[in-house]
Computed example of a mutant assay.
Amino acid sequence: MELEVRHLRALCAIADTGSLHRAARQLGVAQPSLSTQLRRIEQELGGTLFVRARTGCRPTPLGRLVLSRARPLVTELRSLVTEARAAAAGGRQLRIGSTASRALAGWLRRLRRHCQEPTLHMDVSANALLRMVADGQLDVAFVHEVEGCPLRVPEGLSIRVLVEREPQFVSLPADHPAAAHPVVHLSDLAGDRWMIDPAVDGEWDAVRRVLRAAGINPRVLHGDYHTAASLVAIGEVVTVCQPTSLPRPETAVRRLYGDPLGVRLLLAARTDTELEGVYPDLVEAYREVVGQAPAYREWLESGGPGLPVPALP
């Protein structure tokens, strides 16, 4: 017997459901048939893949090894079928890469009106996303470039600038004394712990440079920004944030005095044609989230450099 894709799907279903009965229902086959198929697979591979017990099925060490190779193959085949069907229907899935942005949801919603369901690949590394576009793994990438830390843009990519300089704000506990003011001085945060994600290209270097320029050497925790948001909410840290970030009852989003830290928002693709197809929707989506962010909108209306798009409503 030679292993086929259907056999790999069966193994994944058994592992995912933890039960031959539930896996059989998921696959649309009879349980005795699935049990027979599993025995034949194990005979072919020369070992037991699952331990059967009253509590269900769990992979053996050999089973975990096989599953580690089977899952990517099954996922890749599923993507191939999806893209092939889209192409046969006259379209192709748009493969989007992005760093974190509140504009992303609105952008995807608008793109769905024009094309097949886009696929999305998120990464904190803008450089990694740009390489994926250059290698043909993504069609377009929406990324940010931290001021003073230029991205390594692969040769041949087309770039469109969404925002030349987006100021970065600060997220702090709502009961922090500095939150009582619309603009926060870095000196007001000198005694606080800061949390920074060092995996974001250029972020830690830029924040460290800004803090040093202000004569501040605070305690710093390294971690992702989802964790940072939770720690801000309980008063443990402060952190830089995008100006489109929305405050929550337990947090506040404030502008930093002098706007010492900024990023450039870029859209990258292999051709100008690919950019033209998605850029207008991104502009609309970004304008939408700006309109929802009071502190950022106030900054723009008070003389901050405007967006390279029509004025906000």
Rank of each mutant, 00 (worst) to 15 (best):
G91K: 02
N217T: 12
P308L: 10
L256F: 06
P249A: 12
S171W: 04
A285S: 08
E117G: 04
D259T: 14
Y257P: 04
L130M: 02
T60S: 15
C115M: 06
R160G: 03
P167R: 03
P118Q: 00
T227F: 04
E276R: 00
L3R: 11
P249V: 08
T36C: 07
A105E: 06
H7G: 15
L45T: 03
P308G: 05
V184H: 08
R92G: 07
R255K: 15
V183C: 11
T244F: 00
Y225P: 04
V290P: 07
P260N: 07
A178H: 12
W107T: 00
A179V: 14
P305D: 15
P167F: 00
R58N: 09
G306M: 10
P247T: 05
L94N: 04
L275Y: 00
Y296F: 13
L265E: 04
G56F: 12
L77Y: 00
A134L: 02
L172M: 10
M122E: 14
L8A: 12
H21K: 09
D188F: 02
S245N: 10
V29I: 01
A87M: 11
Q168D: 14
A128Y: 06
R255Q: 15
V183A: 14
P305F: 13
I14E: 11
S125G: 08
L49R: 00
T244L: 02
H185F: 05
E117F: 05
A13G: 09
A269E: 01
A100T: 10
A179E: 03
P305R: 06
V153G: 11
L129C: 05
L104Y: 09
A88D: 11
L77W: 06
P154M: 07
R110I: 01
L261H: 09
T17F: 09
Q168K: 14
R71T: 15
D205M: 03
R212Q: 15
L49E: 02
G28A: 07
R92I: 00
P308K: 08
D16K: 15
A228E: 12
G46L: 08
G202N: 06
G215Y: 00
R255S: 13
G223R: 08
L256T: 07
L120K: 00
E83Q: 13
Q26R: 14
E164Y: 03
Y279E: 01
V170D: 02
E166F: 08
L172A: 11
H226F: 11
Q93P: 06
L129T: 10
P182V: 10
D259Y: 09
D259K: 07
I159Y: 01
Q137K: 07
E145I: 00
G47W: 00
R71Y: 08
V263Q: 08
A13C: 07
L80C: 09
G136V: 01
R113H: 01
L67Y: 07
L221E: 13
R152S: 14
S98I: 03
T239S: 10
L108S: 02
A213V: 05
S187W: 08
L162I: 02
L307R: 10
E44W: 10
P247I: 05
H7I: 11
G106D: 09
R54E: 01
R64N: 14
S245R: 06
R131C: 10
Q242G: 05
A141S: 06
R270T: 04
C115Y: 01
A174D: 06
A86H: 01
W107C: 02
I96R: 13
R152K: 07
E83A: 12
E166M: 11
E117C: 04
E236H: 07
V237G: 02
V240P: 06
L221V: 03
H7M: 05
